[in-house]
């Protein structure tokens, strides 16, 4: 339960922290930390415009996407407390639920019949397909390292396996998860959410035709997703056995740091050339594979 609530709380300020970081880095005064949620409340007050081309899929997709994200949140533990739903292989369902959300986002974009949105859909489909193996190899590494196959138990045992090299995994895992978040949430260096040209967008171009309530749902799902990955990273870097009060503080510290990292990256880095992206994403799988090989060496299976 704690994990669920903390993610919701973190999602409240996560996008704001990114915005603030970017403002500070570029020397602007910039909007306040809760500006994204103020924008949301504006969206919720507005009416909606639907394209004549769109149909049922376009209307239900945002709700389904948000539901998949809420579903995925059920699997995340906090400290030594188990997640709301925890079973062997829950991370498989976690990944596939998020993929279900992607599926609907993509077909909703195709529902508009716009070539721009088709282009975004095609890119999103390709990039999220390429990132899939990286996450699974990473989880396989953890399963091998701890001997368990569920988020809650893996993270509970992560720091008490008695393996001296646990920090290596913690760092590689955190690095990979940061990169996966960037791809899953369509941020730099794969996609630039602030680009103003449809041709260079991925995620933004897919939701061009959304307005009002549905658009708000899409944004909420995006913010929650940030906090979900932030929480995964937190679980990897902070031992589950520490004092709970300290942990709650650390949790928010990690989330703020994570948001800050994203803000800084976006301030100082340009987006990849579009056809460089597949190479970039596949690199993550290779890093995950290297991490796996390292574990084989450390557990003395590979001399």
């Amino acid at each position: 339960m704690a994990g669920f609530i903390l993610i919701v709380v973190a999602a409240l300020f996560f996008p704001g922290v990114i915005l603030r970081t970017k403002s500070i880095a570029s020397g602007r005064k910039g909007p306040g930390i809760f500006q994204p949620w103020k924008d949301l409340s504006l969206l919720l007050r507005k009416g909606s415009v639907f394209s004549d081309t769109t149909g049922l899929i376009f209307k239900i997709a945002p709700s389904i996407t948000l539901a998949t994200v809420i579903g995925a949140m059920l699997f995340l533990p906090f400290a030594q407390q188990k997640a709301l739903l925890s079973f062997e292989g829950d991370f498989i369902m976690f990944a596939y639920l998020l993929a279900l959300g992607k599926f609907f986002t993509i077909i909703a974009a195709l529902d508009t019949g716009s070539s721009f949105e088709g282009m975004g859909a095609s890119r999103e489909a390709l990039f999220s397909m390429l990132v899939e193996p990286a996450f699974f190899i990473l989880m396989a590494t953890f399963a091998m390292f701890t001997g368990y196959t569920s988020f809650s138990v893996i993270f509970n045992h992560f720091f008490i396996t008695g393996n001296d090299y646990v920090l290596i995994y913690s760092i590689i895992g955190a690095y990979l998860l940061v990169q996966i978040t960037m791809i899953e949430n369509s941020r730099l260096p794969v996609d630039d959410p602030k680009t103003h040209l449809e041709l260079t967008m991925i995620h933004e171009v897919m939701i061009l035709d959304y307005s009002g309530f549905d658009k708000a749902l899409i944004h909420i799902a995006g913010y929650l997703k940030f906090a979900i990955y932030g929480s995964l990273i937190y679980n990897l870097v902070v031992p589950a056995g520490w004092n709970v009060i300290l942990q709650i503080g650390l949790f928010f510290a990690v989330q703020v740091l994570f948001a800050g990292v994203i803000g800084f990256t976006e301030s100082f880095r340009a987006r990849n050339k579009m056809n460089k992206n597949p190479k970039f994403i596949l690199t993550l799988s290779s890093i995950a594979l290297i991490a796996f090989m390292v574990i084989l060496i450390l557990t003395e299976k590979l001399a």
């Binding site: 990944a95 993509i106 077909i107 529902d111 088709g118 859909a121 397909m129 190899i137």
Partner: peptide
């Protein structure tokens, strides 16, 4: 297997989207 899953999603968003959606 993860890659197969990803590719299948690519394939069926295409099949469903192109055949049934749009104009």
């Amino acid at each position: 297997l993860a890659l197969i899953g990803g590719l299948a999603i690519f394939c069926f968003t295409k099949a469903f989207g192109i055949v049934f959606l749009g104009e």
